[in-house]
Nucleic acid binder design. Sequence first.
DNA 1: TTGAAAGCGCTAACAC
DNA 2: GTGTTAGCGCTTTCAA
Lengths: 338, 338
Amino acid sequence: VISIREVAKRSGVSPSTVSRVLSGSARVDDSTRKRVEDVIRETGYRPNINAQSLRSRSGQLVGLVVPDTHETFATLIHYAEAEAYRMGHALIVGNPQGDPEKERHLIADLLSRNVDAIIFSRVSDASHVADTFRGRRVPIVAIDRGIETEDVPSVQLNNVAAGRMVAELFLKGGHSDVAVVMGPQNIRLARERTQGFLETLAAEGIRVPAHHRFEGPFEFQAGVEAAQRLLRQDDLPTAIWAQCDPVGAGLIREFHAAGVRVPEEVSIVGMDDTAIALMVYPRLTTVHQPLDEICRRAFGLIRTQIEADHDPAESHDPVHLRIEPSLIMRESYRDLTE
Amino acid sequence: VISIREVAKRSGVSPSTVSRVLSGSARVDDSTRKRVEDVIRETGYRPNINAQSLRSRSGQLVGLVVPDTHETFATLIHYAEAEAYRMGHALIVGNPQGDPEKERHLIADLLSRNVDAIIFSRVSDASHVADTFRGRRVPIVAIDRGIETEDVPSVQLNNVAAGRMVAELFLKGGHSDVAVVMGPQNIRLARERTQGFLETLAAEGIRVPAHHRFEGPFEFQAGVEAAQRLLRQDDLPTAIWAQCDPVGAGLIREFHAAGVRVPEEVSIVGMDDTAIALMVYPRLTTVHQPLDEICRRAFGLIRTQIEADHDPAESHDPVHLRIEPSLIMRESYRDLTE
DNA sequence: TTGAAAGCGCTAACAC
DNA sequence: GTGTTAGCGCTTTCAA
């Protein structure tokens, strides 16, 4: 483990010159540069990032805080890692696991590491998190499941539009007897999906009766249970929207087990367009959430904030980006009018 | 953003005393300690981890390098994050995405951050990675898909045993006409699974003919394609082993689409016991890979290595732990003798 | 029990 | 174009 002083000594220059070669920030004589570069290559020297961070107050680090590790978040991690790498940063991943104490720790830890930005999804106690950040000039972006405060930039799917698209599909397809399996309604994005869905139907005079509304976690099992309750009721709807794909998969599986044919007897539409949608039979018609784009835009905001930080005059109100979903037609849905 | 000097000033002591209070390493007068702690609380002071790392040469950091973000690895990230947090460390996640250049960068970056340990799965060019580490005293653990060199500690599933267990199940169940959908045979863990499976069958005089052996990526689609080819051949085996669950799910889906009943006409067994195994119908009989235990043991090795480092006399040969799999019976398998 | 001083590895003024 | 100096925030001798 060799230091910049050692490299300087071996190439007969001062540490500052080595530093200049490394950063390319200042003019260095060609022959000197060459000599230094040779030594760097020979010795395999790598600057100590902790020392750099201490000086520069930038940890070359991006923090990502996710609420769980379901597929959506695994995908998020995937894209975030790629984006972070592209900007020469490392990615720290933290998962509060629903523990506000851990969440506070994680964020405090990120801050004391001089992260250059924090991306997070649904943090449990929005106000407190905002407090932690107040006064800190760390770019933050809320992604996917936004927090409730509006003073932090965010990038999210247009969840209202997602609900609307499914409702419009049902309307156009002649489905007037529909059901919905909602995500937890204390999560904002689930509320928005529900709102877009129900309001669009209501505008055409279609109501979803209480016994056709189900609420549960974003998990396969929630779909299974909704299907079971639906089957017991014996006035099956002709179309069901599940607010995430695993729930849609649960519906399909349980209907299959009960001998109810999809989509002949009941159409099922999912949400998010995750891998599971392609694995069920029939494959799930669903709404695509472009996580790659969401991530890219989030890092775009981060870069903007970092630049604005260099030039504090340029501080704007927080930006809130809405990414548009799109409908993916597969085999689990059919029009009644066909 | 307040420094230790500021805290010292406000509590009327020297920085060293604040440091002592923080670390609890030395005796501090109770009244002094109290005063310092009060100031820390009031100011919300947090030590700068970069500065600490620079002094102590420990980044309070664990690096995790994974080859992709399939469910297995998402789960790995989940457990690793939890373990890292338990030992007061942050987790940096890197994904080389098959690019040796990026892989080298990632590892070099981790090293220059003074990570306390690196956990990695299948790195593309084992020898080169080993080189990077030579001379560095950073604890390393290979996990899941081991690298080919033996000079680095590892924690892996006993993949040979996994193959053997499935073979024994088939033998006991009276299946003599079997097929296998193997993972990429250039990956060691896939080779080991195959070996355990075929050798156990062979010992009882059962051969798996070439047209009943398929090789493909660890993906759903590989199962779909294997099923399609099997269906074209029209001498269907009575049992098939898929070397990961998504492949098993692909088989089930395609057989379902073709009207072949599982398990009545053909039994299917998966591998790894991931979430997908519970989502298919019938649910997948599979072999459980205890990723939680694997992760726990990996961090155990890390702690051992860190301690051994403090006391260099204690350096042993690298440990290679094998974790035992277990069979999970569900509905996609049935005995022929029933 | 506490403080002063030195230094971890690096960069950025400031000289020359 | 290059070297010298100082200091980022912290911990750790060493003295007192």
